[in-house]
Design a protein around this nucleic acid. Structure first.
Lengths: 139, 139
DNA sequence: ACTTGTGTTAAAGTGCACTTTGAGGTTTAG
DNA sequence: CTAAACCTCAAAGTGCACTTTAACACAAGT
């Protein structure tokens, strides 16, 4: 499979696939006689993994650190696990932030339907109330 | 309250508060006689709102568009609601992406504990399996 | 009088994650 | 034989969201 097909299959642009390879987020890709990349399913899976982690907000650098450890055959397991755990905690926090924002917007949306005429002041009061609720939930 | 106190209270740097004001993400802040910003609780709440939405991945531009509509007294309710809904859908998708990534990492983590000796090949197979599972869950 | 700590502004700089460009090489269809 | 459609690389450019810098102002403490 050439890079264009891989791009279509993964939804990651050719330029970005080349960039990920250069940045060691995916393994070095084998080349054809004339030097073109020949992409197999293993690489496709790695691209999708990178895509998933990027979508989840993992930085290129953290991703590279993780992959580096993962790809080393050595007993880096402990370091790897702690990095993984750290990253997951960050993701879970981010997911919770997202959920809080979603809740906040849901709350607003509900109030639009209840009484569309609400003044800005009323909305602010509601917002304040909601902020307090969120604060409480965290406690 | 001066800008430094506001910064400490919100965890948003002074420079960023000024930037948010310039970008109309928060209302124009009243000034003291000498021209310093005097920040009240209304502004604090607006800063926290921006902070929350930013943490949830809403872009400055979308946030500005939303706030613009919200701050207009006019009957822009419908436009506002559709923008809100759009943004929420995007956030929910992002949250789900995040959850998928978390699941993926949880899966890996579990397998580290199960058999630390797993070869790269085995891990790849497991990864593949897990990808398939995710794919199925989406269907 | 001077240092410290705060504030102001516009403008330039930064870091990340790509994206585009430019100059070239090969393969296939007409 | 040439044009289209793919590929290569390194390097420069882009957009976002800040952050830093520079130059100045003001108020309080020693």
């Amino acid at each position: 499979m050439n890079i264009k097909e891989a791009s279509e299959k993964t939804g990651v642009s050719s330029a970005t696939i080349r960039y990920y390879e250069k940045e060691s987020l995916i393994p070095t890709i084998d080349r054809s006689e004339v030097g073109n990349r020949e992409i197999d399913d293993r690489i496709i899976r790695r691209i999708n993994f990178v895509k998933q982690m990027r979508a989840a907000g993992m930085s290129i650098e953290n991703l590279r650190r993780y992959i580096e450890l993962f790809d080393d055959q050595e007993d880096t397991t402990k370091a790897e696990i702690s990095l993984l755990k750290e990253q997951m905690a960050a993701m879970e926090e981010k997911r919770d932030d997202l959920q809080a924002a979603i809740d906040h917007l849901h709350f607003k949306l509900d109030h639009f339907y209840d009484h569309v005429q609400s003044s800005e002041e009323e909305l602010r009061a509601l917002e304040r109330e909601h902020q307090d609720k969120i604060k409480h939930d965290k406690d």
